Computed example of a mutant assay.
Amino acid sequence: QAKDFIDNYFAVYSGVKKFFDENVRHAEESGYIKTIFDRRRKILAINSRNKMEKEGAIRVAKNSPIQGSAADIVKKAMIDVSQALKATGSKARLLLQVHDELIFECDDDEKSISDAIALIQDKMEHAVRLSVPLRVSIEHGKNWGEFH
């Protein structure tokens, strides 16, 4: 059933399979894969004769451009947001990153919260220009447990 599900997925989304195949081919030829910001990750076992090593390297070649690019984008967004908060004199500040979430601390009044949310959303959604729009969801509360 799993094989059928995967086969059907790639039949419907053939561009995803093509993307994966191109990344694997590039890794086999060059020994590395790149993110959208051209950050490179070496994939030493991509041409291994050991089947287990080769399969693991193929998974890395498929996953790294996506996960690495997501990390690049969130890092750029963090820098952009931080600079914008300072430039506007906002007392909101970035406290923590948890995977793809950013946790901020902000004054308790509604204006401070709404101003910070608008700025954070704008900077995060415009951190990079892609062929599809970036969208973020923002939740707020007295503590992380209230909205997570």
Rank of each mutant, 00 (worst) to 15 (best):
R129I: 13
E146W: 04
D72S: 04
I43L: 05
Y9F: 15
K18S: 02
A116Q: 11
R40P: 02
W144S: 03
Q67T: 04
H126Q: 14
R59I: 01
H126S: 15
L95S: 04
R129Q: 14
R135C: 04
E29G: 10
Q1V: 07
T35W: 05
G68E: 03
S90F: 10
Y32N: 08
A61H: 00
F19P: 00
S131A: 13
V74A: 01
K142C: 01
H140W: 15
F19A: 03
N63H: 03
H99G: 03
A92T: 14
D80A: 13
F37T: 12
V128L: 04
L96F: 08
E110I: 15
E101S: 05
K42S: 11
I36K: 07
K62T: 01
S114M: 15
R39K: 15
L94I: 14
K75Q: 05
K3M: 10
K142G: 03
Q121H: 13
A118H: 14
L94F: 09
E146H: 11
L94H: 04
I43P: 02
K75M: 04
E105F: 12
L96N: 00
Q97I: 01
A2K: 15
K34P: 00
I117R: 13
A87C: 05
N47K: 08
V12H: 12
V60H: 01
I138A: 07
N23Q: 08
S69P: 08
L95R: 05
H148R: 00
D107P: 15
S137T: 13
D107C: 09
I103S: 01
H148M: 01
I79T: 08
D80R: 10
N23D: 02
N50G: 01
I103D: 02
E139F: 00
V128W: 04
G31C: 06
V60P: 00
I138E: 07
R93A: 06
I43D: 08
L44C: 01
A127S: 13
H148A: 05
G31A: 10
F147E: 02
E125K: 12
I113V: 15
